[in-house]
Design a protein around this nucleic acid. Sequence first.
RNA 1: UCCGGCGUAGCUCAGCGGUAGAGUAGGUGGCUGUUAACCACUUGGUCGUAGGUUCGAAUCCUACCGCCGGAGCCA
Length: 464
Amino acid sequence: MQRELIRAVLERQVLRGTVRVAGWVRTRRDSKAGVSFVALNDGSCFQNLQVVAPDNLDNYASEVRRLHPGCSIVVTGELTPSPGRGQDREVRASQVRVLGWADPEVYPLGKQRVSFERLREIAHLRPRTNTFGAVTRVRNCLARSAHRFFQERAFYYIHTPIITGSDCEGAGALFRVTTLGPEGANPGEHGADLYRGDFFGRQTFLTVSGQLEAEAYACALGRVYTFGPTFRAEDSNTRRHLAEFWMIEPEVAFADLNENADLACDFLRFLCNAVLEECSDDLAFFEERIAPGVMDRLQSVATSDFTRMTYTEAVDLLARDGHRFEFSPKYGCDLQSEHERYLTETACNGPVVLTDYPREIKPFYMRVNEDDRTVAAMDVLLPGVGEIIGGSQREERLEMLLVRMRETGVDPDDYQWYVDLRRFGTVPHAGFGLGFERMIQFATGMANIRDVIPFPRTPRNAEF
RNA sequence: UCCGGCGUAGCUCAGCGGUAGAGUAGGUGGCUGUUAACCACUUGGUCGUAGGUUCGAAUCCUACCGCCGGAGCCA
C-alpha cells in the first residue's frame, strides 16, 4: 500500500478509507478505555496526525505502550472523524510497525521545552522540533520564491565560483584554500613564490561574493542572479552573522541605481507575500510562540512603500531629531547599528532604502555620482534585522574605475578581467546582495541567525 | 577582537561562605477518548576545568575553556 504524506491526509475532504502514514512520534498518551493516542509528524506540514492505537493490536503491550518521542513508525488504518477536541480527524490503526526506537533515557527531545542554545548542540536532531520544522519549510519557501521571482522576470540563474583568486574585494577577511602543508597557512614574505607550487598555482580563497563574476555575465546576458554560499572569516559573534551563509545577488545591465532599488523593493515584497500565502500554518506558530507581531511586519513590508532617502538626508535627520545616540551621527562615517535601527524602527517605522554614500567609505566598484563626492550605493534596512540588502550601480567608466582602484588601494593588475568589462562594450549596470538567512530571520522572527540555517558555522563552531 | 553576563540532576533553574534543592523529563502504580493530561511514590549531581584564600568554597579571588547578549565588521 502506498504511503501518504500527513499533509495530504490532513487535506483530504472525505474522512474515510484506509491510509498508510510514516513518521516520528511526538507524544503518546494512554487511555484505560483500551487505546493509546500517538501524535505523529512526518515533516510534510506543521500539524501532527493523531493515531489511535487500540489494545487489540498484537504488539500493543510489547511495542505501542513503549513508544516515546522520537520513535519512527509506519501506521496503517482507517481515516475517521475524531470525536475528541483538538483535531477533526484521526487514523484508527490496524497495524503499527516500529522502524526505530528512541530510548527516552538518552533521547534529548521530549515533551519539555528545550532552549535554542541547547538545540544548537544537537543540530542533527533539532529539525524534529516544531520550531525547526517550521523554519525549514519557510526557508524552502523563500528559496523557491526567490528563484520564481527572477525566473518570471527573465533573469538567468548562474553559478559563480566558490573558490576565488580575488583577495581584496573589500568584504572582510577570507578563508584560505590550499593543499600545501602547515607553511601554506602562514606564507610570510615569500607568499607569491610559495603559492606558485600550490594546487592552483596561486593564492586562492573561499568567495565572499559572486558579484564581480556576475557582472561579467550581466554584461553579456543582461539579467542574471546567483544564489549560493558565501564565506567570511571575520571573528564576528553576533546574532546576525555567520562564517558561512547564503546570498542572492542579481545583476542587471542597462540599469541605474533607481531601477536597482525598485528591483530590491519588489523582490522583498514578493518574498513576504509568498511566505504569507504559502506558509500560513508555520507563520501562525511563529506569531503565537516565537515572535508576536511577525505577521504584521511581513504584511507591512508586503504592501507598504519603502521610505527612500540619501545618506546625507539620513545623517541630517539623525542629527536634527535630537535623539541621544552613543555615537553621534557624522557625515563621512559609516552609520552605526543604533542609527540604522533608529531609522527603520523609529523614524520611519518600516523598511528604508538609503542611497548615495560618501565615496571614501565605499569600495572601488561603486559608481561615482555627478557631485563627485558620493557613490551610487544603496542599503535596504528592515526593522528587527537591520541591513538586509547592500548594492550599488557599478562604475562602468574605465577611467573612473581606475581612479577609484587607486584611491582604494586596489591593484588593477589583479582585476584585469574585471577592467576588461569596461574596456569592451561597457554598459551601465547595477545589482545587490540579499543575505538569505537575514531574510529568513525577518520572515520567522527568529532572533538568532544560527537558528535559521541547518548547520551553522561560526567562530569555533563547525560541528556536524 | 573588545565590553558585559552566564556555566549546579537528561532539560529549565533556585541556592551565593557551613558540606545540594525545586519544577520538568525518565521509571513504577492509579485514573482518564486522551491532547502542555492528572494523582502518588521513585531513580538521578566529584555544582565547566585548574589553581588560590579560608577551620570550611557551588558560594570569594585568578587563569583558562565554552555559551549568550551588545559593539566592531558586514549580508
